[in-house]
Nucleic acid binder design. Structure first.
Lengths: 74, 74
DNA sequence: ACATCGTGTCAAGGATCTTAGACATCTCGG
DNA sequence: CCGAGATGTCTAAGATCCTTGACACGATGT
């Protein structure tokens, strides 16, 4: 078990907003496996920066719209 | 030998813009080692998304200002 | 000449991300 | 009922990121 990541994401919402796009389809479009999408979507770990960029591009949104990081200090 | 990353970055310029900040100091502020900063700065690999967020925060800029990803298609 | 600082290299090991395959559940349509 | 699609779990292995420690080199200052 890796440590839980502090990185958050909105990709489930983005998938539905993008015409009910399925996890398998997203995985295919991004060039990843379905497993990886599930794990990221659930916040089990944070993706590499490269993968994060690819995902954001699929939805046509800026990276910081798809992924978030909590404020310092708290 | 990992594969060379497509992710680009501006952290060297950002360091100098932030008062001649040194690699060691940046590493310390971000909570990484100096080695990691060097490798990222040279584009030898792309950092994790979490690390990318931390670096951008140190400079007080949005993530996409510190890191870039080339356009699709070519 | 000597010490110090900033940058860089190399190698080995630990931590994290990603893949592959098998399998369970739920829902929906025939 | 039965099959198919979408989501999820588990395990094991491979790839990438990150660390530790040691050492090299040029520039700067005493």
């Amino acid at each position: 078990m890796g440590k839980p990541t502090r990185v958050t994401n909105d990709i489930r919402a983005l998938r539905f907003a993008a015409g009910e796009m399925t996890q398998a389809e997203l995985a295919d479009r991004v060039g990843l496996t379905r497993q990886t999408i599930i794990a990221i979507e659930q916040g089990r770990y944070s993706p590499s920066l490269e993968v994060a960029f690819k995902i954001a591009r699929v939805f046509g949104v800026p990276l910081e719209r798809a992924f978030g990081y909590p404020e310092e200090g708290s």
